[in-house]
Amino acid sequence: MKNASNLFVVAEVVDGHPVGLCHEMLGLARALADRSGGTVHAGVLGSGLGGAGEDLIAHGADTVRVIDAPIFAQYQADAWLPDLHAMIGQVRPDAVMIGHTPLGADLAPRLAFRLGTNVATGCNHVRVEGGKLLLTRPCYGGKAEEVVSMLSSPALFTVKPKCFQPCPKQDNRGGELVRMDSILDPASVRTKVREVRRDASDGARLESARIVVAGGGGMKGVRGFELAGRLADALGGAVGASRVACDLGWCPPSRQVGLSGKTVAPELYIAIGISGAAQHVAGCANAKTIVAINTDPDAPIFRYSKYGIVGDCHQLMPALIDKIEALRK
């Protein structure tokens, strides 16, 4: 791949609205295309898409291909692949980007292999240097980063959330909206979604919260998380957790922050009783300020933290709640 002038963004839509990561990807695509005088294409499949296409244009897409059909009500790779493959055949992009979400992580490798190319997953930095598209991604559980390039075209990559700035929304931005018919043969969809089980806890708020109070093994149990919940309430924030805490059932899995959980980038991340393993930090390293509370002064989490308290969180959490409530008065 020589340049990155024509980009294709696969947009993910929830309840008729492109997810925030789409806007982050468009911000990145816009920056890459503007430097080379290229074009930003987007493709979106769904059912009941409403103004999703217009929204993508307002956030930086030049052309948007939209297929709105009931068969796309629920994501399945088998259903998504033929139409996306066809769209990419029409656009002939230099690079294709997809959000690194459960949908994107499922779709991107399939699409890459169908196109005879490879994919770099979970990229947190992308640039063009000497005509080469350089994709940076964490590896070894976040302990290292690698920069890779692709010999085959188009280069596919998935984009880690909270790493790129979205373009500001411009409602009068010009762009071409192409409504298309699906070429999918429904009989080729081999999998079937039988049921969707939504987690009762409001884990989605975690990703947009300005303040996250996260608990780990040091919470010692559900009681610890009750205190963490009260602290989060006092701060107007959301509760997150390490994998250890989720695996032990102290907290629902939708709260897990990290490599195999969610990526958050709040203004303030308070890690309580969390050791700071690389795989955990992978999900919170982009927080503006990290605060650590831990009994072990050598816990790795302090190396990522601006402020730290060495001490027992079960004594510190009630004290913090008191001080914050006093501040509010």
């Binding site: 490879n118 770099a120 350089l134 964490p138 590896c139 302990k143 290292a144 980063e145 690698e146 920069v147 890779v148 390039s149 692709m150 010999l151 990290i290 650590a292 302090f302 190396r303 990522y304 933290s305 601006k306 402020y307 730290g308």
Partner: peptide, 15 residues
């Protein structure tokens, strides 16, 4: 895929 670089990212936060 061509591996261009592999490194340990610097982390310069002072606690």
């Amino acid at each position: 895929r061509v591996l261009e670089r592999l490194y340990v990212p610097v982390n310069d936060v002072q606690c």
